[in-house]
Design a protein around this nucleic acid. Sequence first.
DNA 1: TATCCACCGGAAAAGGAGGACT
DNA 2: AGTCCTCCTTTTCCGGTGGATA
Length: 340
Amino acid sequence: MTVIEDSTPLQQNHLPDEIIDRESEREQLQKAPTDQNLHIHGPRGTGKTHLIKKYVEDIDGKACYISCLEHDTQYKILQQLVSQLTHDSIQTGHHTSELQRKIEEHTDVLDFTVVLDELDFLLLNDGDDLLYFLSRLNNPPRIITITANTEDLKQQIEPRTYSSLHPRRIQFEPYTGQQIYEILADRASKTLKPKSLHRNAATYIASSTQNAELALTWLRTAAQHADEAVTEELVQEIREDAYNLHIEKHLEKLSQHHRNLYQAIQELSKEKGPVVNAGSIYQRYQKITEERGREPLSNRRTSDYLKQLEELNLIKAEYHYGGEKGKTREVRLTDQADNI
DNA sequence: TATCCACCGGAAAAGGAGGACT
DNA sequence: AGTCCTCCTTTTCCGGTGGATA
């Protein structure tokens, strides 16, 4: 016995045609002049990527969507751009300027949009070289940047880049409990048998998180476990599972080393309390990695990886520059109490 | 006043994969 | 096939941080 009628709309990457409660943002997006660059900022799970992907579908063919989580250097993004524009794949080994020239050939004759999602991961590695290059072309493409951590691009990039980019900012606020409730109810109506999502269950989820992605993962997990209906008890029962699944989904996109690091923090915070410092994390990470028969990365390298986990909001870190604790950072896991 | 803590984070360098040319 | 180029990933090196302690 299952409560699921049509599992498609429940799946992780499903993009429903209608977006709930993002009317004003959608309007801002559609009404912005097409030569105006945009910077979209908002916490995770507020529908930024979702809305942009729909937008890209609407103006089909004229936009390149690139996630800087996967393509985190200027070079990789240039490769992506060239291969999307020319429809064939580019290997490594080329000169950056050669790729830039190819892109320039396209911009000269074609107006198109470049969407850079998760921009923080590019800025972390390569700074703003790519943004500078794109914005200073003769006939620059329209640039839409999306980030969860950089509210104001001006703080993060060179003044000369900012002045040629000069993006209009579109801010996504966290969903309210009411909105999360509506999203859940809507999704349930499309996927579950009638009346199988209890009102209290949806209310419980909606009062626990403002992150729509997490809320939907939660609903999905509950629906898969449900016999007759998704009840409040069931939703409470699987709370932990749903959250872990949500985390796993993010970690999947990263490397085994990231996962080992995360596990190290998990273990340590279970043993010694929630706050752990970077040194002990590294030691535990080494142990875990060696036990799996792999060579651990250097301390310096994992320091960068920790930063990436932080950017993804999987951990929180507090930096100390000197003082009684020396120069270090204290790390703890982001948990549901943080209302992500 | 010198030294210590504990590790951050920038810079440089090493090693590797792939392309272009001879 | 060999050489030289490119960029990517990772390591190595090291200066720096500011209160606590001797």
